[in-house]
């Protein structure tokens, strides 16, 4: 466990110092996606449940935060809280439906539910349809930190990211996390030991949805925009890709995966459809030859779980 804590400190310091060298908005984007991917990884990596609809939580929280900040004039802390809460609520409802089936069906159901949510947001008025909710005010955090200042915003995002990351770290190492791993490895055995596996899976789903929502709400404030992109199935695919590339079921993998994918998109942005093609190729290569991902390979090289 010690080396994980050391790695955690290194990561925190790197992110704290990164804006000295790199464009801060880019790092903020990486951090929100890293949190999103970590939340997703909690479900697949530790619960063995592949959700193909996690974009619905990211997008819902984004819309809720953006709407509450822009139309209702919520301060940023409440807007983020409101967005996260909306995602958590959606997580409860969709989770109750999705955990009724396992494995491949679970993936298809989450994908279909997310598509339903997408069409809903496409039609309702408050989301602004194709335009999205633009010019969302960042506001002043707790009434005295002006988030229109890029540094204030940056370190707020850093705190949220580290907070979310620590929460996931804590969940993974808690007795709850151990039971979750047990369910992933052998569900009938977990049931025979007296665990109500459905309840554990639902709770894992809701925690994952909530933290994905936290990422989405933060993202909406950072970019001052909530749009359909965040709810579309391509976004759900992207978070799967980040986690797969970084390493399924590793603690730091999703962060590395998010960093690589976001950087790649940044460099390839002007090439249009090539981004999709490269993403597809990474998927294929990862599944065929690189299933442990970057951090998974590193961990097996160091012989220590990361």
């Amino acid at each position: 466990m010690r080396h994980q804590k050391i790695a955690l400190v290194i990561m925190a310091v790197l992110f704290a110092l990164a804006p000295l060298a790199v464009y801060p908005v880019f790092i903020m984007k990486v951090m929100t996606f890293a949190l999103f991917a970590c939340a997703f990884n909690l479900l697949i990596g530790y619960g063995g449940l592949l959700s193909f609809g996690h974009a619905m939580f990211l997008g819902t929280a984004g819309y809720a935060a953006a709407h509450s900040a822009k139309v209702w004039g919520f301060p940023p802390e409440l807007a983020i809280l409101f967005g996260t809460g909306a995602a958590a609520l959606l997580g409860v409802v969709t989770g109750l439906l999705a955990i009724r089936r396992q494995g491949i069906y679970f993936a298809m159901i989450t994908l279909a539910l997310a598509q339903m949510i997408y069409f809903y947001y496409l039609q309702v008025k408050f989301t602004g349809g194709e335009d999205g909710i633009q010019a969302v005010p960042r506001g002043t955090l707790f009434g005295f930190i002006d988030l229109s200042n890029i540094w204030a915003m940056y370190y707020t995002v850093l705190v949220i990211f580290l907070g979310g990351f620590l929460a996931i770290y804590r969940v993974i190492h808690s007795p709850f996390g151990q039971v979750l791993k047990c369910i992933r490895e052998n569900e009938p055995r977990a049931i025979s030991l007296g665990y109500d596996t459905t309840r554990y899976k639902l709770l894992a789903f809701v925690i994952s949805a909530t933290l994905a929502g936290l990422a989405g709400a933060t993202k909406a404030l950072v970019f001052q925009l909530a749009s359909l992109t965040d709810v579309h199935w391509t976004m759900s695919g992207e978070v799967v890709l980040m986690t797969l590339l970084g390493g399924l079921g590793t603690i730091f993998g999703p962060v590395v995966g998010a960093l690589i994918i976001i950087s790649m998109e940044n460099y390839l942005a002007q090439l249009g459809a090539w981004v999709t093609i490269v993403q597809g190729v990474i998927f294929v290569v990862c599944v065929l030859t690189f299933r442990r991902g970057v951090i998974g390979e590193l961990a097996s090289f160091l012989k220590k779980p990361l």
Partner: peptide, 10 residues
């Protein structure tokens, strides 16, 4: 599923 998803993207 993941492999065929990647193929679809390509």
């Amino acid at each position: 599923l993941l492999l065929t998803f990647g193929l679809a993207l390509v």
